[in-house]
């Protein structure tokens, strides 16, 4: 059984009568990497600020490890490491001093700090900048320093608001690798993004928010399967068996939009939309084989997240 570390229950927040977050609910299991996805202005930062005890909600509740963020503020704060979308640094402070300052803020004894800070700088690959002023770091480096800062008290949960925004592609790849490393270290991670590509191959779970409402939430694979209700299937047939194949397909009511073309080798390529589930897909293959259709290849196109997102948020205009 997985335990839900973060539970958001019917959370809402309005600013001057306008709903920024409108009754959202979801939970995040321990050890998950949760991608909180939505376009700009959807309410991601607002939700994250309530979760991190920095903003009062209008309604609903957020609990972290069973503790209400409003009531057990201090305990929750100790369990969370937070990297905001934008954060400032103090002037005249070096990378080392910055981390030392926050180590002090978390009551880490001075004797333990050098080893801890050295480890964190190694983890985020900033060892060579330890004596440079924080202001002189690039956006990517600041982001990594922010992550090191968020980890200084060894929190169970990491909350990152748009961590990939403003990073170049290389830095983005490195950042994803870093998050995966943190997951293997046992952290539960929530990060927000308005870019869907950030989710792919990184998240275990996703929540999609649009205009303050959750559009979809859950395990990434399950969500994909659910959305694959209509899939595109590609077949290649050996030789000249097109009519047999078309006849077999015509019996299946889930098949629509069949197109075909002969390829350079003289075999036929077929493409059609199929609205059945995976049981129906396997039944379709069986029927084709039973009809003596010489299948050379069978491929279904996995829906890209971009398409999934478009499909989910269809018609909702913020």
């Amino acid at each position: 059984m997985t335990t839900d570390l973060i539970v958001i229950d019917n959370l809402s927040k309005s600013f001057d009568g306008r709903n920024a977050v409108d009754g959202i609910s979801f939970s995040i299991a321990a050890g998950a990497i949760f991608g909180f996805i939505g376009p700009n202005g959807a309410g991601k930062t607002t939700t994250i600020r309530i979760l991190t005890t920095l903003l009062q909600p209008t309604g609903g509740a957020v609990t972290v490890d069973g503790r209400n963020v409003l009531i057990d503020k201090e305990a929750v704060r100790r369990q969370l490491g937070y990297v905001p979308d934008f954060f400032g640094t103090y002037n005249d402070m070096t990378t080392w001093e910055y981390l030392d300052f926050f180590a002090g803020c978390y009551h880490i004894p001075p004797a333990n700090r050098p080893a801890l800070i050295t480890d964190l700088l190694t983890l985020v690959d900033l060892t060579h900048r330890r004596d440079d002023y924080v202001n002189s770091l690039s956006r990517g480096m600041k982001q990594r320093l922010g992550l090191a800062r968020a980890l200084i008290h060894d929190p169970q949960i990491l909350v990152l608001d748009e961590p990939a925004a403003g990073l170049d592609p290389r830095a983005r790849v490195e950042f994803r690798a870093l998050l995966q490393e943190l997951q293997t270290m046992g952290k539960t991670i929530l990060f927000s993004s308005h870019i869907l590509a950030d989710v792919d191959e990184l998240c275990t779970d996703v929540g999609i928010i649009e205009a303050g409402k959750m559009v979809a939430v859950g395990n990434l694979q399950a969500l994909r399967a659910e959305l694959r209700a209509t899939r595109t299937i590609y077949l290649t047939l050996l030789g000249n068996q097109l009519n047999a194949a078309l006849a077999a397909l015509s019996y299946a009511p889930q098949v629509t939009d069949v197109t075909h073309s002969q390829n350079a080798e003289g075999d036929w390529d077929l493409q059609f939309a199929f609205s059945g589930d995976k049981v129906a897909v396997s039944a379709l293959i069986a029927r084709l084989v039973a009809a003596g259709v010489p299948l050379l290849s069978f491929r279904e196109e996995a829906q890209s997240l971009e398409e999934m997102f478009m499909q989910l948020t269809e018609g909702i205009v913020s």
């Binding site: 920095l54 201090e74 937070y82 905001p84 640094t89 803020c105 009551h107």
Partner: peptide, 13 residues
């Protein structure tokens, strides 16, 4: 103004 406040108040301080 410098956006350092939130990070300071959520520490154990």
């Amino acid at each position: 103004e410098r956006q350092t406040y939130d990070l300071l108040v959520i520490t154990a301080l």
